[in-house]
Design a protein around this nucleic acid. Structure first.
Ligand SMILES: [Mn+2]
Ligand SMILES: [Mn+2]
Ligand SMILES: [Zn+2]
Ligand SMILES: [Zn+2]
Lengths: 129, 129
DNA sequence: GCAAACTTGACAATGATTCTCATTTCCGTC
DNA sequence: GACGGAAATGAGAATCATTGTCAAGTTTGC
């Protein structure tokens, strides 16, 4: 639990601001070009570093697309939750599943697994697509 | 659902045999070196191709590690299921969660998502580690 | 056996992510 | 406000799993 202490910089603020503008999960590369278009020049390495730090602090959620790319999103919920992600437009809906959490805990315990963590994402086509 | 029809070859049999020997999820690279050690020389590209084909036919399960590497496993169950994976030794236990399946279907429908698919894996430390 | 179609494998190419390190920025202190 | 050490940045190189290429080897139906 070492808290990541980063000095506030223009670049980091820009990355966070860019994330706040969208509802979609976005890759580092996408955010980088988006920032360039907006005139806010931020190095690609810095975008990666910032996203990694934000994810470590649970300020943003990360998930892997089918293609293996990491995509990030600033979620409304602070608490543990999951996502319904549109394969076409990338839009995401935050969902919560107490029953799933219980099930995961129960199954883990039953098999003697410790320090468990789980990943659960639902991919589909949203009603707008 | 175009069925992948591959001509049977020594190489493909070797990959499948290697998978059958282990309980762990293994990467293409790991399987490749394992095969070389055993004297069964199979090209790396062929290992990748075979694994991709097997996964497409649901003969093997695939999942992504935290590091983003694809790992494959020949599971006992033919049906849809999930895994409890040991972070340390890689050992995996097949688990089944009807409640989770229902939840996923319900949530997807509630938000108008179609053609949904989900990924759910639990990572932890097994009792032997 | 034969030709067409498929598979293999050595190697190159790709592409996201990480590393390097010289330069710039931050921040507490004087 | 200027200073100095620490942290952050960015351009480009390096990494590394995965995919593409294509000539040579195999398989299959005839
Ligand atoms: Mn959960
Ligand atoms: Mn399921
Ligand atoms: Zn959509
Ligand atoms: Zn273990």
């Amino acid at each position: 639990m070492t808290e990541t202490v980063r000095r506030p910089t223009r670049q980091q603020a820009a990355v966070l601001a860019a994330l706040d503008e969208v509802q979609e999960f976005m890759s580092a590369q996408q955010l980088h070009s988006r920032l360039r278009e907006q005139g806010a020049s931020v190095g690609l390495a810095t975008v990666y570093r910032t996203l990694t730090a934000l994810a470590a602090d649970d300020e943003v959620d990360v998930l892997r697309t089918d293609e293996g790319e990491s995509v990030y999103r600033r979620c409304a919920s602070e608490d543990h939750h999951h996502h319904l992600v549109c394969r076409a437009c990338g839009r995401a809906v935050e969902v919560d599943g107490p029953a799933v959490e219980d099930w995961a805990a129960r199954v883990s315990a039953a098999h003697g697994f410790r320090d468990v963590r789980h990943t659960l994402e639902i991919f589909g086509t949203c009603d707008r697509c």
